[in-house]
Design a protein around this nucleic acid. Structure first.
Lengths: 199, 199
DNA sequence: CAACTTTTATATCGAGTGGTAGATAAGTCT
DNA sequence: AGACTTATCTACCACTCGATATAAAAGTTG
C-alpha cells in the first residue's frame, strides 16, 4: 500500500546519473552540488531517498553490481578455466572503454584513498572488488575438481592474478588507454594464465 | 648567495611527510590542515615554499621519483628481458608492502579521479606512471635488438602489460594484500610474460 | 471533500576548504 | 651596528562542504 505524495523522480535514472558522477570524480571528488545537479533533484530529496552521500554511493554500487552480474554469469559459464579467463579479460577490455560510461571501473575510480570522514569508502569498494575475485576462485576450484586444471594449479593465485590485472586495466583505462591497448594487455595476461594454470 | 632569514624547516623531511599524507588520503582527501600538521609548518610557509597545494604534490612526486630511480636503474640493468621483468615485479611486491610507507603506490593512490578544480591531477599522475612504462619499453626494444627477445615479440605490449600489473598490484596492496600475495601475482605474471616474450 | 502521509523547494546550518594580508621574527650583508 | 631580505605567525578571507529545519505542494485513503 502506497500513501502520501509519490516520488516525482525516477529512482533508477537518478542512480545512473549518480553512478556516473562517482565514476568520474570519485567519492570525495563528487560534491553534493554535482550529484544533485546530475540527478535533477534537490538535496533534501536525495537525503530522503538515500539517507546520506555514502548511502547514495552504496545504492549506486548495488546498481553497478546488477549491471555486471549478467556479464559475470556469462564469464563463469565458460567451458574451461582458460575460457573463463579469456571471457573475463575480454569483457573488461570492452566495458572499461565503453564510451557510454566513464573510462575504467567504478570500483577502482570510486576511491582508493579518501579524506577524513570517508575512511570506510575504500574498504567498501575493496570488498566489492573482492567479490569478483571470489567468484573466479570458486570457478577455478571447480575446474580443478573437473580435471580442467592440473592438480598442482593454484586457483587462489590465478583468481588473484586476474583480479589484479582487471584493476590494473581500470587504472590504464582511466588514464586514456584505448580498447586495443587493453585487448593487448588481456592477450599477454592470458598467455601467462595458460602457462601457470594448464601447461 | 643566500640572504634573509633562512628556512627553519627541513625541506626534504617536510616533503616526505607531505608525500605520506598524499599517499594515504589522495590529493583531494589530503587537506591543508592534515598536510601542515604532518609537515610541522603553517600554511603561509607551505605556500611560500611550494606555491600551491598542487605545487606541493608535484614536489612530493619529484621526490617519490627520486626514491624509485635507483630501484629502476637496478631493474633496467637486468641482463635479459625476463630478468628485467622479474626484477620489476619483485621490487614492486616489496615496495608496495613496505611497512615504512602507506600500502600501494603514490602514483595510483594519489588520485585516479578528482573533484572540481583538481581535474589535472589524474593526468599528472598518469604521466608519471607512463614514464616507467616508457623506460621498460626502451629496455625491451634494446633486448629485441640484442636478440634477447624474439623478432616477433611486441615490446609495447610487454611494457604495457607490466605497467598494468604494477598498477593492479598497487590497487591490491592498498586493499590490504600482503607481500606474499603480491609475490604470487608477480610469479603468475612472469609466466605470462615469458610465454609472450620468449618461448 | 477532508484527513493524512510523503515529497518537494527555499533557505540555511556549522564546519571545513584552499589560500592570503599584515605584522613580527630571524637571519645575512655592508 | 644598521639596513635589508626572507620566513614565520596570527588571524582571517570568501567559498564550498555535507546535511537539515521548515513549510508548501501533491498525492492517497476514508
Amino acid at each position: 500500500m502506497v500513501m502520501g505524495r509519490p516520488r516525482s523522480f525516477d529512482m533508477d535514472k537518478a542512480l545512473d546519473e549518480a553512478m556516473e558522477v562517482f565514476w568520474r570524480h570519485g567519492y570525495d571528488g563528487a560534491s553534493l552540488a554535482m550529484l544533485t545537479k546530475a540527478m535533477g533533484i534537490k538535496a533534501p530529496s536525495l537525503y530522503a531517498a538515500f539517507g546520506s552521500k555514502e548511502g547514495l554511493l552504496k545504492a549506486a554500487l548495488d546498481r553497478y553490481a546488477l549491471r555486471r552480474s549478467e556479464h559475470m554469469r556469462y564469464v563463469l559459464a565458460g567451458p574451461t578455466a582458460r575460457d573463463v579467463a579469456e571471457r573475463f579479460l575480454s569483457s573488461i577490455a570492452e566495458s572499461h572503454t565503453d564510451p557510454a560510461n566513464p573510462p575504467g571501473c567504478l570500483l577502482v575510480q570510486g576511491g582508493l584513498a579518501c579524506g577524513a570522514g570517508s575512511e570506510n569508502i575504500p574498504f567498501e569498494l575493496a570488498s566489492r572488488r573482492a567479490q569478483t575475485e571470489t567468484e573466479l576462485l570458486g570457478r577455478f576450484a571447480q575446474a580443478k575438481e573437473d580435471g580442467d586444471l592440473p592438480t598442482d594449479a593454484d586457483p587462489v593465485a590465478l583468481a588473484r592474478f586476474l583480479s589484479t590485472v582487471a584493476s590494473g586495466m581500470g587504472v590504464m583505462a582511466s588514464s586514456g588507454a584505448n580498447r586495443d591497448a587493453l585487448r593487448a594487455v588481456a592477450s599477454v595476461s592470458l598467455n601467462a594464465f595458460a602457462r601457470s594454470g594448464q601447461d
